[in-house]
Computed example of a mutant assay.
Amino acid sequence: MAGPAAPRRTVLKGAALAGMAGLGAAACSTDSKLGHAETPTPTAPVDLGEASEVPVGGAKLYKEQRVVVSCPAKGRYKAFSAQCTHAGCLLEKLEGTVGDCPCHGSKFDVTTGEVLHGPATAPLPEVPVTAAGGKLVAGPRS
């Protein structure tokens, strides 16, 4: 004899959770050949604004442009993708020159792109950045 049927609410709740799990997996897809998330870099030059907004010896996160820029010395800039190489999440905040990924806790040195704490194993990809006329531009040169 079969047991009692599951209440409709339980079935619907399970279906909703299964759907959300599928979306989460799609949002955090990884490139199986590389073993880490694909991290696209700007394909066209992107204006980041005033170079003076990046402190010497520090860094600035440009969330909308998905880039993090550091300034190791006055007039010198280095940029990296701000998208975590583990699951593709956007770095949430900077603590000094350490970028934090909110999804799984990876930490990156945003002056070198190197992983400081996993689960990410691949460094942040470097992004070309230029300073001209007091402005910063990330991405390929036009």
Rank of each mutant, 00 (worst) to 15 (best):
P42Y: 00
A25G: 08
V56Q: 12
A16I: 15
Y77N: 07
G118I: 03
R141F: 05
A18W: 10
C89N: 07
G3A: 13
D47Y: 03
A37T: 12
A37F: 10
A18P: 04
G58K: 05
D47K: 14
P125T: 13
G118S: 04
A131Q: 15
Q65N: 06
R76T: 15
P55Q: 12
A16R: 11
S106E: 11
V67H: 00
S106M: 14
G57T: 09
L124P: 02
G75V: 11
P140R: 09
K78H: 10
C101L: 08
A82W: 09
V129N: 08
F108Y: 15
L90V: 07
G99P: 06
P72A: 06
T121F: 10
S52Y: 04
E38Y: 11
E95M: 10
A79W: 03
H104C: 09
G113M: 10
S106F: 09
E53Q: 15
G22I: 08
G19F: 00
D47E: 15
D31I: 00
G118Q: 05
A73W: 04
D100G: 04
G57H: 08
S29P: 01
G133R: 00
L94V: 06
C103D: 03
G105R: 00
E114N: 15
F108D: 08
R8N: 06
V129P: 00
A87P: 02
P102A: 14
E92N: 14
E53K: 15
G24H: 05
A51M: 11
L34R: 15
D109Q: 09
P42Q: 03
C71M: 09
G49F: 07
G49H: 05
E126M: 10
G139Q: 03
L12R: 13
F108R: 06
A26F: 06
E126H: 06
A59P: 13
E95Y: 04
C89G: 08
P119G: 11
M20Q: 09
S142I: 04
C89P: 00
K135D: 00
G3F: 11
C103A: 14
C71W: 05
K107G: 01
L124E: 08
M1Q: 14
R8F: 09
A37P: 03
K107P: 00
A44P: 02
C28Q: 14
D31M: 00
G105I: 01
S32E: 13
E38W: 11
P140D: 11
G58V: 08
G19K: 01
E126Q: 13
K33S: 03
T97F: 10
G118L: 08
C71L: 10
V110R: 12
V68I: 02
V67N: 03
E53F: 09
P4R: 14
L23T: 07
T10K: 12
